[in-house]
């Protein structure tokens, strides 16, 4: 082989080797001249879980003396609801009711939640099947049967046949909760008062539309 041929072959070999090296290094993603360090597996960087923000809503009593507030905290596929009352202008809050439920259901504070005398509040729960309503004492006190709340929907179904609650709108008087209902044939609308002391329903001749 002539010298020239040998030198040419050598040159081609060097160029090929260089190209191959470059390709190899690019694939390795190594920057020549820098130091690469890896974290010490014995000292892992702590994972910080950022919780989703708490959503809040509130409703003042009609005389402005008290406030009912609600916090909603997302927890995975659920949400935790907490209800508080406070005396204005005092900022300290008293927890009166809590519930955790699926994220596609919700609780809310109705506009007319407070009784006119600020003694009770009613809360609304919206589920896939129906709305539920709970009456709670403003201080979180228990009722005569030891329960922390009155479940209006359950009481209604126990006491009133052939009717379904359409809406609970507010308080007709300090102890009378207005419950609007429809008969099962869906052709008659009737209003009831839920009487707090007796925890019974009074059917009315006037419809509270």
């Amino acid at each position: 082989m002539s010298l020239l041929k040998r030198e040419l072959i050598t040159l081609v070999f060097i160029l090929l080797a260089t190209a191959a090296s470059i390709v190899f290094l690019m694939k390795r993603n190594v920057i020549i001249g820098s130091h690469v360090s890896a974290s010490n597996p014995e000292d892992p960087v702590p994972t910080i879980i950022v919780s989703k923000p708490i959503e809040n809503e509130h409703m003042d009593s009609p005389d402005g003396e008290k406030t009912l507030s609600m916090d909603r905290q997302p927890i995975g596929d659920n949400a935790a609801y907490s209800f508080f009352t406070s005396e204005n202008p005092d900022l300290s809050k008293r927890l009166i009711f809590t519930k955790e439920m699926p994220a596609n259901e919700m609780m809310s504070i109705p506009y007319n939640a407070w009784t006119p005398d600020n003694e009770y509040v009613f809360l609304k729960e919206s589920t896939e099947n129906q709305n539920n309503y709970y009456v709670v004492h403003n201080q979180g006190n228990t009722f005569s049967d030891g329960s922390l709340y009155i479940d209006i929907q359950t009481k209604f179904k126990d006491q009133i046949a052939d009717f379904t609650i359409v809406d609970v709108t507010g308080w007709a008087a300090p102890n009378l909760l207005i419950v609007n209902a429809q008969n099962n044939q869906e052709d008659t609308l009737v209003s009831f008062w839920f009487d707090m002391p007796s925890q019974t329903f009074i059917r009315l001749g006037t419809y509270f539309y």
């Binding site: 009609p62 007319n112 507010g170």
Partner: peptide, 20 residues
């Protein structure tokens, strides 16, 4: 100060409002 059902008729003719 005797009812809290605003957004719905409740009076004998007057316009009832929340006291605040």
């Amino acid at each position: 100060y005797w009812h809290n059902n605003f957004g719905h008729p409740m009076s004998h003719g007057c316009i009832n409002m929340k006291t605040t």
